[in-house]
Design a protein around this nucleic acid. Structure first.
Lengths: 340, 340
DNA sequence: CTGTTAGCGCGTTCAC
DNA sequence: GTGAACGCGCTAACAG
């Protein structure tokens, strides 16, 4: 960032004023053809590139959006990001990405940095759904879209999945296979996905008059290790479950690993359904039945909503919008009830 | 980004000059305690946050680095990114991420946008190793670090993996299991990883005096589908290979899927080693032997190198540095030579 | 210790 | 059609 030619240099070289150069740079028209050519020539010769910082300064926009996610290594999020970026690049926005590692504190810092930088909008899967820590964003009047997890403290556009329905369908599927003793590995109950998926589980169980033993309810943290540990724990139940519902992808991986390690035979001694599809699903024996959702679409939708906000589309003013994308069950073979 | 209080407002409220406010904001010292307190109070009351754009304008740095990768949905890259971000956040840098989708054209656009935005440095896994399209970065004097793929046209710090050694070890391992007919699913030969891994394969084969049939050499594009298709193709060889070496993670997944679909029995009719570890590796039957590498470290190292460049550390001036991180073989069971 | 002021590079009136 | 000049918010001399 040194000695870069400025609009001044171009103006001088082309024998015009900076105003005229600015006009052709921004394609505002109203410049005679020959002048324009001269300017373009100068730009090329000088290798001039416009300075977005200075431009942001006067325009009061950075054409940049911030994205905050809790864990970039969970394959769910790269898909979301890919969706966001796809749309963003089309709208000529850059994407600044940060991972909070599920820490509210880190998230606050990221937010601070975002508002300092004058980001135009934020898409966030928050580490803390209370959301008071998003205050600075609202102070600065920066539009926010929540993805996958809601935000309680503020009214923001939100893109969620049908968590409850998805979980309900999954458990119902288990029940249809004559399962009655179904355990759940829950996610954090202070997150929308964690709680709603649990509710879906309960709903299905209740609807079919099935009892829910306390020992079948395990609390995980959406990470692989907890899936592993909790599955081991489930194997020690006084009343052994014949099926397990796992609340997310990473915990499913852990769970399956545990099953293998304990020789608790999948699809024979115990059935399994997980929320979110995973690579390993078709490699286990039998393949895993899972709840799947169009992740890339979630990201695209999120950007779309944010974009409208950033443009201050009058149509969407003052109304919180909530989109719930419907997931669907991919039935493979891990739920068949066989001999027990 | 509207009506935000400025340093002026704070100055007025605290009855001092902007210079003094600037001093406390930047913790430069030389301000009497009571004045400082008054200013801090004003900042709090006004909810003032400093404007990084204006600051960048005069400081001529944005405290932002740009990261370009070819495919965010390849789990290899999120790990890299996690490593970069970890270090970056510690050094108080933000990270702007963009995915090129392996397109040189898109990559050029991203680069253009980066230099316009006055990014301080770039970490890139380029879609085109020739690298002429990186010219604008050098025009603008922006330091660059290449990760995983080299850049030919310019001398830049580079972080690579021991691709050849890794592949060599993998193939050698196969040979030690008495395999002689070993096929390779190659990556693009105009990429360092693609080419070097192929060289490692050749080296091992030659060293042990094993012939390489042309039909055993398949050209993939590092994506899952090509792994799938090429494995199918391999099954039609006149002289069937007894082992396959796959050049990357995604192609490995495709390959294994193909094996399953064709009932070409893994670990029995055909052995397998892949470059890069993958989730599914421990779920296949038998589990997959793979070449593994410390991806997060690659990212951390890359940032470290870039950081030194950005600080213009005189120690590193004018020398291109190249780091090669050694991979290692994780031996599982997919290579045992059994009955054929 | 604190204040004044000159830019940083650009977009935008408002004249010409 | 084109140009001159102001100001965006801040930092960095330089004065006091």
């Amino acid at each position: 960032m040194t000695n870069k030619p400025t609009i001044q240099d171009v103006a001088k070289k082309a024998n015009v004023s900076v105003a005229t150069v600015s006009r052709v740079i921004n394609e505002q028209g109203g410049v005679r053809k020959p002048t324009e050519e001269r300017i373009k020539q100068a730009i090329k010769e000088l290798r001039y590139v416009r300075n977005a910082v200075a431009r942001s300064m006067v325009r009061k926009e950075t054409k940049t959006i911030g994205v905050i996610i809790p864990d970039i290594c969970n394959p769910f999020f790269p898909e979301i990001i890919a969706g966001i970026e796809r749309k963003a690049i089309g709208a000529d926005y850059s994407t600044t990405l940060s991972s909070s590692n599920e820490s509210k504190k880190i998230e606050s810092k990221i937010i601070q940095s975002f508002v300092e930088r004058g980001i135009d909008g934020v898409i966030i899967t928050t580490a803390d759904e209370n959301g008071e820590h998003l205050q600075p964003l609202f102070d600065a009047n920066i539009p926010v879209v929540a993805v996958d997890r809601a935000i309680k403290h503020f009214d923001v556009d939100t893109v969620l999945t049908g968590n409850r329905e998805g979980a309900y369908e999954a458990v119902r599927h288990l029940i249809m296979q004559k399962h009655e003793k179904i355990a759940i590995i829950r996610g954090p109950q202070d997150t929308t996905p964690g709680l709603e998926r649990y509710k879906g589980y309960c709903q299905a169980m209740e609807e079919y008059g099935l009892p829910i033993k306390e020992e079948w309810i395990c609390d995980g943290d959406f990470m692989e290790d907890s899936g592993y540990e909790l599955t081991k724990k489930l194997s020690t139940c006084k009343e052994m479950p014949t099926a397990i519902f796992s609340s997310n992808n990473l915990m499913s991986i852990g769970a399956i690993k545990a099953l293998y390690d304990m020789s608790w035979v999948l699809g024979k001694e115990v059935s399994f359904v997980g929320f979110d599809d995973i690579d390993i699903a078709t490699f286990t024996n039998p393949p895993l039945t899972v709840v799947s959702r169009p992740m890339r679409n979630l990201g695209e939708l999120a950007f779309q909503l944010l974009f409208e906000r950033m443009k201050q589309d009058p149509l969407v003013k003052n109304q919180k919008r909530e989109f719930i994308v419907t997931p669907h069950l991919i039935v493979r073979q891990s739920c068949k009830r066989s001999v027990y």
